[in-house]
Design a protein around this nucleic acid. Structure first.
Lengths: 335, 335
DNA sequence: CTGAAAGCGCTAACAC
DNA sequence: GTGTTAGCGCTTTCAG
């Protein structure tokens, strides 16, 4: 049984109020009693009970983080940033693995609500109406990470997918490519799907390259396997491509695999550019040129936004984080 | 302001005690009042405050997970399993990123202590004396994951590193290799370092292959960069190797990179076998043959052990999880 | 079957 | 400066 504030008070011959004041370094006690109390605390190895504190303060110093998948490198990096910033702010994170499943998500939201967490970070996925309604009833700060909502007024931190994709496509064009294909994620995905496809198309158009529907292939998601299938399909329907833009690094690495099986070399036979700059990007052979999303920083930023909202009581304003071209060896200058 | 049990009681014309009984489905109320109370709860959208509950029950339904690095695929998978099992048991996880740093770890332990978490999972790293002393004072279940302690009586769940490495080396031998090198992790690491080295050496010896110190190279850690450097060094000091055992998949992928730069082909010029079976193993080119640690299952198991200790009050017994050879294409039959 | 009341460990008026 | 006391929202005796 851990010691309580009462034990400290008794042993130091003061009231619990005094101990509390010293603990929260408020005013209203002499240097002398402070010293005495601190000594007792030290002796006892006393530490305040955060649960009790939470009950009275209505602050648990814990935030909830909802992620779609835990064993993805994307999520891992984002979590890294969130955890870091949370820790600096004296808070902990509870991570919830939603599998992008509506029911699971609602259950987690319920759980987080009961635990009276201070804020929520909702990562990459669609913010459904029911989520929004529930969380807005909770009246705690929420921020969207690597996603956004056109419908609900929730601040977000993300990269500009449209522009980043535009940049990727333009990079390929600048390297002399004109027959460029794209392996995209889900075309129903309003966040990471459509904008990247549009950005890609627009860049080609702006450079006088006509885009045929045969130039882009739509996958289920953004995973490795989608990439191996997607690239196969893309190459079948359009064998003359010299460069491919993959909407995620995993997709790109998937493409590496099928190209290898087709006995095609990157970048000699085909150039590839990815999106994300996950750790696999530099581990692959050849190292993958890609558009970086500053995932760790984005996580930090999202967490900081939650804390600032908590303090100010005002809605934070959304942040578009800068993307960046990371040039490695998977794109070859053409001609 | 969320509704409280009082609001429910008042609206249902019963006492809070009755509401509490119904909430915890105990006995001592009529079907009729139960129905009435449940209706009110529904109408109000009432949900009990877990913080208040935690204060009286001394159970927060939260466990703390200490991990050395967050953006590692190894940790991501293990977390996946832990989260899953915790969720099934109705608990949440607070993840703490220690960076294998003693001070940070102690701070986290302190924090977790104040938050009155129900149990701890300590993942891959050395359980220092000070950690043990602190946690044993907390008097809550702790289990070690992918690590163990010879000194302190803490249950663990892990693979048998010695045997798994033995198996890896033996596999190479069975494929006809006799000039086999190893890229090991830190040789000071009593958990993941030494046993793997010993298992490797023993396998070779048992098959009549003498092991020279030139056959193994010691790295700082188990990361990609260690692998690129380690393999370079290994090949320099012993150019006639035909196969390499890397003590982690990341180390193996690092080796892929330097081999590629040296214009050596896997597996034609050199066979490679890894350890872990992370998701990169199947994404690499060629797909990596490796010894699997069932990371997700290990995470689940660790969590379940914590909960069973919580219920029974007794120490769980440690579990050695089975490793498994995953044959892919990075090892070539020789001769 | 049901309610009153004490108490979990702490904070925050409010007194002195 | 310091102590007393009333909660925070809930569970749990103990009466009835």
């Amino acid at each position: 049984m851990p010691y309580t504030i009462k034990d400290v008070a008794k042993k130091a011959n003061v009231s619990i109020a005094t101990v509390s004041r010293i603990l929260n370094n408020q005013t209203g006690y002499s240097e002398k009693t402070k010293k005495k109390v601190l000594t007792v605390i030290e002796e006892l190895g006393y530490h305040p009970n955060a649960v009790a504190r939470g009950l009275v303060n209505k602050r648990t110093h814990t935030i909830g983080v909802l992620v779609p998948a835990l064993s993805s490198m994307f999520v891992a990096e984002v979590l890294d940033g969130i955890e870091k910033a949370a820790n600096e702010a004296g808070s902990s994170i509870i991570v919830c693995h939603t599998e992008s499943n509506g029911e699971k998500t609602m259950n987690y939201l319920q759980l987080l609500n009961e635990k009276r967490i201070d804020g929520i970070i909702f990562t990459s996925g669609i913010l459904k109406d029911e989520y929004y309604e529930f969380t807005s009833k909770m009246k705690i700060p929420m921020v969207l990470l690597a996603t956004l909502s056109h419908k609900h007024p929730v601040p977000y931190v993300k990269v500009d997918d449209y522009k980043a994709s535009y940049a990727a496509a333009e990079y390929l064009v600048a390297k002399g490519h004109t027959k460029i294909g794209m392996i995209s994620g889900n075309k129903m995905d309003i966040i990471a799907g459509i904008p990247r496809i549009e950005g890609f198309k627009k860049a080609l158009e702006d450079h006088g390259i006509s885009v045929n529907e045969k130039n882009v292939v739509y996958c289920e998601g953004f995973a490795f396997l989608d990439g191996v299938e997607g690239s196969r399909k893309l190459l079948e329907q359009n064998p003359e491509l010299t460069a491919i833009f993959a909407a995620s690094d995993e997709l790109a690495i998937g493409a590496y695999s099928t190209l290898y099986q087709m006995d095609l070399r990157v970048p000699d036979d085909l150039s590839i550019i990815g999106y994300d700059n996950l750790s696999i990007a530099k581990m692959s052979i050849p190292p993958l040129t890609t558009v970086e999303q500053p995932l760790i920083k984005m996580g930090e930023e999202a967490a900081r936004m939650v804390f600032s909202m908590l303090e100010s009581g005002e809605a934070a304003k959304s942040r578009i984080m800068p993307h960046q071209m990371i040039e490695r060896l998977s794109v070859k200058e053409k001609g």
